[in-house]
Design a protein around this nucleic acid. Structure first.
Lengths: 340, 340
DNA sequence: AAAATTTACGAAATCGGTTTCGTGTTGACA
DNA sequence: TGTCAACACGAAACCGATTTCGTAAATTTT
């Protein structure tokens, strides 16, 4: 193991004190020009880099942001990470990424470990199991320890911290309204169980659009997917109803619905129009390409770090939790009719 | 800011020395039962957690693994990250994730920052620009500093470190051979420019399969995509040739090819069979679903950390770089004929 | 009862930096 | 020539832990 060069090494080698070396390397006026030059040349030659751990300990900050996601093999979340990393880097921060895998226990543990001082703050999207349990005490503890925390996408009101969300109700409304506008009469909804907050909100938007358009809502047209079961089989039930439009709260559900529709010999979009959620690769490349709600994950990530870094760097200020709503766009593609 | 509790606080509060506290918390036999109980109870009550930075500095290890990827919004890379994180966590490590965005300069900087002691080792897949430049000195410096390094997927021989790769030649061979076997006579290849090592290797496999099968290779059937230009237009050129099979070295190229084929009114797989690379969501959900080479990213990630942690924890051992080849599977779906 | 050992704890060094506060030397000014 | 400021540098504290070593008191051994 090649010995890493430290301030102490330099000091000994050059016959000066460590304080002199430290000051010389920061170009302090306290140090004479000759000494400075000598030290800088030496440090440069041996490619001296200050040990970041020592600095972190001294400064009581790590310049690291912890990010906990439910999963990563997922277009939306990976886009958010991109946004987080890009802006964090700009600001001189790095990110430590962990996954809860939708698991409550792992979320608790990860949170506990990361709050030991390894990060200056945290950005989290809550695990499904936690949303189901409704046990948020691990987050509340964090807030009480005054560790900066930003929640995004999957958030809950019980936790007093900054939050970034997509306008899920609005998006659900926008999608459903579009289906109505192009002439769909019986619109199915493929959503998540109620405890998944985003699913519930998108459903609200769906219902709002129907009511506003005087279309009767029908609970038989709403399927709540249990991901532990076979997704396709559950969606197939929806096709037993007489439907001419589908709003799915994510890409996978939409893709599955499209597949089933094709298998049943339905023409998309003429017999049935489909709108998904998340503007991922599936929506873009499947055929027909899928009309979808684009969530702007990159912007969400960026906003999340922005809020977080602001919190971290202005700790003295009185803190009032902010909630930022990112609007989402309907991206019209081939899976929806152009008019009635 | 609520004051974090430290060993010093406990010591002062309980009228003992910091060493006593430290030992008591580790249940050392050196400390009397009463004192121990008192300290442990106190620490427990105030939810004391040792400052990890202090420990890292003292132990000269961070239990953090740096991961540098070219991009993340990509099925293969996000799968690899999953694998890395899963096994790293099992072993008590965390991962710091950075992205080079295929950019040489950012790769150099990131590498430099992370090698300041913030991580115990690094897992990297090289940026495209770096591969093009052929300037690997930043990696070579790293190796000379004896910082454990594992390269995966995009690797180069010039760097003496552990490597994990997919059997790209074999995979290219397997895919092409399959096309030959089902009766394709003129097989197009959609690949990357030569400097992208994986693309070049997959091409070798393609050529090998053709030669072995006494099919004439034809450079007009090979398209090297320049990602700075319009991908679809480039692929369209291939369709000016008379082809009945396509092997694309990634999912996006395959999806684009399929789209063009459909636009031209070709029936897939009867008129033309298509095989892609990376078993992502596009391949799975497009219709027809795409026959592809599954790369087992999760396993690659896991193997990479395994090698790395082994390196980190057995630094004394003489080091001989290993290269692990992960075999890949042909996953047959609907975009290829079942027989000739 | 004296010697040896064990028990229970504290002082201080260490990890690698930064920073405050002194201090000896030099030069300028009265 | 005496005084004072400026200059150039070092000693030591500090960040928060661990760990070695030393030692007083208690206990056991001889």
């Amino acid at each position: 193991m090649k010995q890493k060069i430290t301030i102490k090494t330099i000091a000994k080698e050059l016959g000066v004190s460590t304080s002199t070396v430290s000051k010389a390397l920061k170009d302090s006026h306290e140090i004479g020009k000759e000494t400075k030059d000598k030290i800088q040349a030496f440090a440069n030659h041996y490619n001296y880099k200050p040990n970041s751990l020592a600095l972190q300990l001294r400064n009581q900050k790590t310049k690291v942001i912890g990010v906990i996601l439910p999963k990563i093999v997922h277009h939306f979340f990976s886009t958010v990470i991109m946004g987080i990393e890009a802006y964090a880097n700009e600001k001189g921060y790095h990110i430590m990424v962990c996954f809860s895998n939708e698991d409550y226990q792992k979320e608790v543990e990860t949170l506990s470990v990361l709050s030991n001082g390894s990060v200056d703050g945290l950005i989290v999207s809550i695990a499904n199991e936690t949303l189901e349990n409704k046990d948020f005490s691990h987050f509340i503890d964090l807030v009480e320890e005054d560790i900066p925390l930003v929640l995004f996408d999957r958030v809950v009101d019980d936790i007093l911290c900054d939050k970034i969300v997509v306008d899920d109700v609005g998006a659900g409304y926008k999608a459903t309204k579009h289906l109505v506008d192009i002439g769909c009469k019986r619109i199915g909804l493929i959503t998540t169980p109620d405890h998944v907050s985003v699913g519930a909100l998108r459903r609200l938007g769906y219902e709002k659009a129907l009511i506003e358009s005087y279309v009767k809502t029908d609970s038989k047209l709403i399927i709540k997917i249990d991901e532990k079961q076979d997704i396709k089989k559950q969606i197939e039930q929806l096709f037993e109803q007489n439907i001419d439009g589908i709003f799915a709260v994510n890409e996978i559900y939409a893709a599955n619905a499209m597949r089933i529709a094709k298998e049943k010999g339905l023409n998309i979009p003429n017999d049935i129009s489909i709108i998904g959620f998340t503007d991922g690769l599936i929506s873009e490349y499947s055929s027909p390409s899928i009309t979808t709600i684009a969530q702007h994950g990159f912007i969400m990530g960026r906003q999340a770090v922005e809020l977080l870094i602001d919190r971290i760097e202005n700790e003295t200020e009185v803190f009032t939790p902010k909630k930022i709503v990112i609007s989402s766009d309907l991206k019209i593609r081939e899976s929806t009719k152009t008019s009635s």
